[in-house]
Simulated scan of single mutants.
Amino acid sequence: MTKIPPAPLVLGLAGLIPFVWGALTTHMPNLQAWGATHLGPRFVGPYIQLFYGSVILSFMSGVLWGFATKTSGLRATMGYALSVIPALWAFFMTGGGPTSAGINLIYGFAGLLLLDYAFHMWGLTPGWWMRLRLLLTAIVISCLAIGVYL
């Protein structure tokens, strides 16, 4: 694995803000009240985590699709097919209430990491990809787990 370039690292870390904010506002009533008043009730607690998590899983489907364009034949077909799984997972598995949606997002991000690894092993990702994805996924899953289990 090579060093993560500054731009993807900074942007990736910035993309964690809604997950971290959601975890904080789930367990800090004063912060949740401030956020609900100034940002709106859908931008605090599990609401922001669940909505943003669905958006990010869909975004990552697009990223994987882009990686699939770097190959051809059966591997490309497999790559395209696998790349739509995170978006479909978010679409079908985030209903039914905040607890089940949060648990399903945790599984979705864990599954996404497996897909990242497959694309990495096929040589379709930058050398630093797995280092970045491991870091971001660990934080996302931790924040979602705070919202679901604590």
Rank of each mutant, 00 (worst) to 15 (best):
M1S: 15
M1R: 10
M1A: 10
T2P: 09
K3C: 11
K3I: 12
I4T: 14
P5E: 12
P6N: 14
A7Q: 14
A7K: 14
A7F: 14
V10A: 14
L11E: 01
L11N: 04
A14W: 01
A14Y: 13
A14E: 00
G15A: 04
G15L: 01
I17H: 00
W21G: 02
A23Q: 02
A23N: 03
L24K: 02
T26A: 13
P29V: 11
P29Y: 12
N30K: 07
N30I: 11
L31K: 11
Q32D: 12
A33V: 04
A33K: 10
A33D: 11
W34I: 03
T37G: 03
H38I: 08
L39R: 06
P41N: 12
F43Q: 08
F43V: 02
V44C: 10
V44F: 07
L50Q: 01
L50V: 12
F51H: 14
Y52C: 02
Y52D: 08
G53S: 09
G53H: 05
S54H: 04
V55A: 11
L57I: 10
S58E: 01
M60F: 14
S61K: 14
G62R: 01
V63F: 13
V63K: 03
L64F: 08
A68D: 04
G73C: 04
R75Y: 09
R75H: 09
R75N: 09
A76N: 09
A76H: 11
T77M: 13
T77N: 15
T77L: 14
G79Y: 04
Y80I: 06
A81K: 00
L82N: 03
L82I: 12
S83C: 10
S83F: 03
V84P: 03
V84W: 00
P86E: 09
P86K: 10
A87T: 14
L88F: 15
A90Q: 06
F91C: 14
M93T: 02
T94R: 04
T94H: 04
G95F: 13
G96W: 04
G96S: 06
G97K: 09
G97A: 09
T99M: 13
T99K: 12
S100V: 13
S100E: 08
A101W: 02
G102L: 00
I103T: 10
I103A: 08
I103Y: 06
N104L: 05
L105H: 06
I106W: 08
G108V: 07
F109T: 00
F109M: 05
A110D: 12
A110W: 07
A110K: 05
A110Y: 06
L112H: 05
L113T: 00
L114H: 10
Y117P: 00
A118T: 00
F119L: 05
H120V: 08
H120N: 15
G123I: 07
T125F: 00
P126I: 08
W128A: 01
W128H: 06
W129Q: 02
M130V: 12
M130G: 14
M130T: 09
L132M: 15
L132C: 08
L135I: 11
L135T: 13
L136T: 10
T137S: 15
T137G: 10
A138I: 08
V140W: 00
I141S: 09
I141V: 15
L144T: 01
L144S: 06
L144N: 00
L144H: 08
A145F: 05
A145S: 15
A145E: 03
A145L: 05
I146F: 10
I146P: 00
G147C: 12
G147T: 05
G147W: 02
V148M: 07
